[in-house]
Design a protein around this nucleic acid. Structure first.
Lengths: 341, 341
DNA sequence: CTGAAAGCGCTAACAC
DNA sequence: GTGTTAGCGCTTTCAG
C-alpha cells in the first residue's frame, strides 16, 4: 500500500515548507503573499498526485468537522427522508455534510447515537427526539453544541425548534370530515406523551366537542404497532365497536396498518368509511380510494431547519436566543373523505 | 463552555501519567500490571465526570475510525433500508458503526461521497455502485481499503460482491406468468447497462423465447422515471400498444409509477391484467389486487455483506481473495398474477 | 508497575 | 514571502 501522501511529503518533494503548502491549499496564498509561481507549482503538483488532505487531522486541529447530524424516528419514512434531502442540499452549499440516522423513537438508541457523534465532534444536531432524552439534549446545549429540535420538542427546555401547528392541522382535518356529513368519527393514534401527538389529539377532541360530537379514540402503544394484536384492535375499533362512519389517523404508519386490516377483512368497507390521515405518502395517491391527508410543508420545514442550524453555527459562542418556528400544514382532499351518501 | 476534559486533564487531576490513564481506559490495566487500586481510582473518576475520549484524536493516532459506509441508490427504498438495518446490528456487535448514504445512482454523487468518506478515513465501503465509478472502486482497492459491492458489480473488476441471481429470479417470474396462461407478457425496465438489469432482462427474454413467445420490452431512461412523459409511455405500452395481458416490472419504483398510471386511467384494468414486480414492498400487500413480487432474501444478503466485510477487515493487508456470493430470490405469489380467466 | 516522550497530519502564530 | 514550531488528544514504545 502506497501510503497516502501528507503535507510534509509534499513540502519535501517541492522543497518548500509545510506552511507554504498549507496556506496555498487553503486558498490563503494571495493573502500571505506567496508568489504566483510558487502557488502554481504547489497546485499543479497536488493536483497531479490527486492530493486529499486528511480530514481527521484537520478536524483534530481545528475542532470542526463540518458534519451535521440529522436524527429522526425513521429515515426511511417518506416525511423524514424528503426533508433530509432538502436540508442536505442547503447544507452542502455552505460546506456542511449531513449524516442521517434513525433512533426508532427509542431513548437508548438516541443516546447511543448522540454519544457516538459527540465523540466524533460533529458540529451540530438536528433531532426529532424520542421522549426521554431531555437530559442529553440539555447536556449538548451546555457544551455549546448547536441543537435544533424538529417535529416535537420539550416544553420546559429552551431550545431552538421547528415544528408544525399540529393542533390546527388536526382540527382542520376533523372539521373537514364533519363538513362532509360524517359524525361517528374515530381517532386512531399512538399512545404517547410527546407533544406532536397530544396536540393532534387535542385538535381532534376540540373540533369534535365544538360540533357537539362525541370523541372516539383508540390509542396504540408504540411498541405494538407491528404486532398482530394491533391489527385486531384496529379491526375491532373500526368494524365491530363504535359503529364508526369515518376514521382520522394520527400517523401514516397507522393508516398503512389499518388499510391492510381493512383489505384482509372487508374490501368494500372503504366505499362507506371516511378516512383522513396525518402525513401524506405516495401510497395514498395510489390506493383505492385515494386517501385524504394532512400534508406538512416539507420544503419550508427543511429550509427552516437548516437556516436555524446555520445561524446557530455562525453565532459562535455568542448566546443567540433560540429560534422557535411553527409552520402550518395543509389538507389534501382526496376521495376517501368526501361525503359518501 | 467548559472544555471537554482530555486524558491529560485526568492524569493531572489524579496525579498519574497519561499513559496510565490510557492503559486503564483501554482495558489494558491488568495486562500492564497496574495496581487494582489505581485502576479503580481511574475508572471511578472517569465515570464520575462521564469522560468520553475524543474519537477524532483516536482515529488520527490509530488510523482506524471503526466506521463503515453503506452506499446505495436510495436508502429510503425498503429493500436497501431493510438490509441496512440488518447489517447495522451485526456491525455493532463487532464494534463498527455503519453510516448510510444514497448516491441516487449518479456517478457524480457517488464520487463525492467516496471522496468525502475516504478523506475521513472510514474503514470500509459497502457499495451498490452507479454505472461509471469503476475507477474510484479500483482506486479504493489499490489503497487497500476494503470494498464489497452489492446488488450489481463490474464484471472486469476482481472485487468482493454479494448479489442475487437476477436471471434466475426473472426467469422464474416470467414462467410463473406463462404457467398462469398469460402470453402477451410485457417487460418494463430501466434503460441500463448495469448487470442487475441486463440479467433481469435476459431471464425474461430467454423464458419467453423458450415458451415460443415474443418478448415485448419497454425501457425507461433512469433520469425520466419521475417525469410525466414516462407515465404516458407506460400507459401507451400497456394500454394502447401491444395488447398485453400481463406485465413484469424490473423494479418496484416502476411498478409504483405504473400503478398510479393505471389508477388514473382505468381502475378496472387490473382485474384483467397480470402483474409481477421485482422487489417486494409493503404497498404490494395492500394494493388491490395484491401484487406478486420477486422477493430478495434480505436477511441473508445483509449477513453475507457484513461477513464479507468483516473478513476483509480482519485479513489486514494480507491479500485475501475476493469473495463472490450469489444468492437466490423467491417469488411471492399474490392475486395480481393468478390466471384471470 | 509507571512515566516521558514521540508522533499521527494538520493549522497558524511567530520568527526572520 | 517563507520557514520553524507548538500543539490539537490520543496511543504506545521505551526507559527506569
Amino acid at each position: 500500500m502506497k501510503k497516502r501522501p501528507s503535507l510534509k511529503d509534499i513540502a519535501k518533494k517541492l522543497n518548500v515548507s509545510v506552511t507554504t503548502v498549507s496556506f496555498v491549499l487553503n486558498g490563503k496564498g494571495k493573502e500571505k503573499k506567496i508568489s504566483d509561481e510558487l502557488i502554481k507549482k504547489v497546485i499543479d503538483y497536488t493536483d497531479s498526485i490527486n492530493y486529499r488532505p486528511n480530514k481527521v487531522a484537520q478536524s483534530l486541529r481545528t475542532g470542526k468537522t463540518n458534519i451535521l447530524v440529522f436524527m429522526v424516528e425513521d429515515i426511511s419514512n417518506y416525511f423524514f427522508s424528503k426533508i433530509a434531502r432538502i436540508m442536505e442540499d442547503i447544507a452542502y452549499d455552505k460546506g456542511y455534510k449531513v449524516l442521517f440516522c434513525s433512533n426508532e423513537n427509542e431513548d437508548e438508541r438516541s443516546k447511543e447515537l448522540i454519544q457516538l457523534f459527540s465523540e466524533r465532534q460533529v458540529d451540530g444536531f438536528i433531532i426529532s427526539p424520542s421522549p426521554g432524552i431531555q437530559n442529553e439534549i440539555e447536556s449538548l446545549i451546555e457544551n455549546k453544541i448547536p441543537v435544533v429540535l424538529f417535529d416535537r420538542y420539550f416544553e420546559d427546555l429552551d431550545v431552538s425548534h421547528v415544528i408544525i401547528d399540529n393542533e390546527d392541522a388536526s382540527s382542520k382535518a376533523t372539521k373537514h370530515l364533519i363538513d362532509n356529513d360524517f359524525s361517528r368519527i374515530g381517532f386512531i393514534t399512538i399512545e404517547s406523551s410527546q407533544n406532536q401527538m397530544t396536540n393532534r389529539e387535542k385538535g381532534y377532541v376540540d373540533a369534535m366537542k365544538s360540533a357537539g360530537l362525541e370523541p372516539l379514540i383508540l390509542k396504540i402503544p408504540f411498541e405494538k404497532i407491528h404486532k398482530e394484536e394491533t391489527k385486531l384492535e384496529i379491526r375491532k375499533f373500526i368494524i365491530e365497536g363504535q359503529e364508526l362512519d369515518s376514521v382520522f389517523f394520527s400517523t401514516n404508519y397507522l393508516t398503512r396498518t389499518a388499510l391492510e386490516v381493512i383489505k384482509e377483512t372487508d374490501q368494500t368497507l372503504l366505499e362507506k368509511l371516511g378516512v383522513v390521515t396525518f402525513d401524506d405518502n405516495e401510497l395514498f395517491r395510489i390506493n383505492t380510494p385515494t386517501i385524504t391527508a394532512v400534508s406538512q410543508p416539507l420544503q419550508e420545514l427543511g429550509e427552516s431547519l437548516m437556516n436555524t442550524m446555520l445561524n446557530l453555527l455562525n453565532s459562535k459562542a455568542e448566546n443567540l436566543k433560540p429560534t422557535k418556528s411553527v409552520l402550518k400544514a395543509s389538507l389534501i382532499v382526496r376521495n376517501s373523505s368526501i361525503n359518501k351518501n
